[in-house]
Amino acid sequence: MPDPNPAALDFLMTRRSRPAKTLTTPVPDKATLETLLVAAGRTPDHGKLEPWRFIVLTAGVMPRLAEATQTRGVALGLDPDQIAKGRSQFDQGNLAVVVVEVQKPSEKIPALEQTYSAGAVCLALLNAALASGWGANWLSGWISHDRVFMRDTLGLGDHERIAGLIHIGTETSTPPDRPRPELSSITTWVDT
């Protein structure tokens, strides 16, 4: 018989991201954040490639990132609302972790599996923060897919890209649960 962990299962059945705009200070200190990063690093990783790394963004860098987002959005000719949405996570942010996918050459592990692992790190970090009592949200948006922003603003190499920005802080309000998929509509049972 398996040895159940009811508290962990209850957490997973009730977990809910907190909107980034509702997060405020205090944020985790360095030691606390390092614990969350270690937990995230326990993500499944075929071939032990570690196809990801972290960039921690603290409050002091947020204004520079907001301005860089504004400048890049204008250069791309984006709609002002798109630009505002892209920069708002930095205008309002106090702590975020950029999970960077780092593609590594491998004859055994396809690039797509490395992408899956980087996405799993995002969810693991999000869940570690939530399980520790912090509010957290996984964001992306147009800046996460813009090669110039990744290179010039965050220093990413050509073999790297943003998998997600995980904002962590103290929640100011608990959001209502959102509709979840109906299990029968997303599950196929194969018996023979």
Rank of each mutant, 00 (worst) to 15 (best):
W189M: 01
G169R: 00
W134I: 12
H46G: 01
D152T: 14
G73N: 13
L65W: 09
D152K: 06
W52M: 05
L95I: 08
T25L: 13
K21S: 10
L126F: 00
T174A: 11
Q89G: 02
V98P: 05
R87N: 04
V100N: 11
V102S: 05
W189V: 07
G41D: 01
G157H: 10
E101Y: 04
W52R: 00
I55V: 15
R72Q: 15
R64G: 01
V38A: 04
V61L: 14
L156I: 12
R72H: 14
D81Y: 10
V121C: 00
L36K: 01
G47T: 07
D158S: 11
P51Q: 08
V99T: 13
K21V: 13
C122V: 07
L12R: 00
P110W: 09
M13Y: 07
L76W: 15
R87A: 09
A84Q: 11
G119I: 15
P2A: 12
P28M: 09
I186A: 04
T69L: 04
L65N: 08
G133E: 08
L139P: 01
R161E: 08
P19S: 11
T14P: 05
T187I: 07
M1G: 13
M62L: 14
P63V: 14
A66N: 07
R18G: 12
L139G: 03
G141P: 08
I109Q: 00
R72K: 14
Q114P: 01
A163Q: 08
F149N: 06
L139F: 08
G119C: 09
T174G: 02
I109N: 00
A96F: 12
L65R: 01
S132E: 15
G73K: 11
R53A: 11
Y116D: 14
D158V: 15
P80R: 01
V74S: 03
P51S: 03
V61S: 10
V74C: 03
Q92C: 01
R87P: 01
A124K: 03
L36W: 10
A66H: 13
A39E: 04
F11Q: 01
A40M: 04
F11K: 01
K48Q: 08
P105G: 06
H145E: 14
E50S: 12
R147E: 15
T187S: 01
A96P: 02
L156N: 12
L49C: 13
G86I: 08
D10Q: 10
P63Y: 10
T35W: 00
S88H: 12
D79M: 05
W142T: 06
P51I: 15
S132I: 13
E34V: 14
W138I: 02
G133Q: 04
T170N: 02
H145N: 07
D91F: 07
T14K: 09
L123T: 10
R178G: 03
A136I: 12
A129N: 08
I143M: 11
K85V: 06
L49T: 09
M1S: 07
P176G: 08
T170I: 05
Q89T: 10
A40Q: 05
A120I: 10
A40N: 03
E101M: 09
T58G: 05
A39R: 04
D146M: 09
G155V: 11
W189H: 02
E113G: 02
V27H: 05
H145F: 15
L12I: 06
L156S: 05
L33K: 03
D158R: 05
T174M: 04
T170F: 04
L36G: 02
Y116S: 08
K104S: 03
L36Q: 03
G47Q: 06
R178N: 03
R16V: 10
K108Y: 13
D158M: 11
E34R: 04
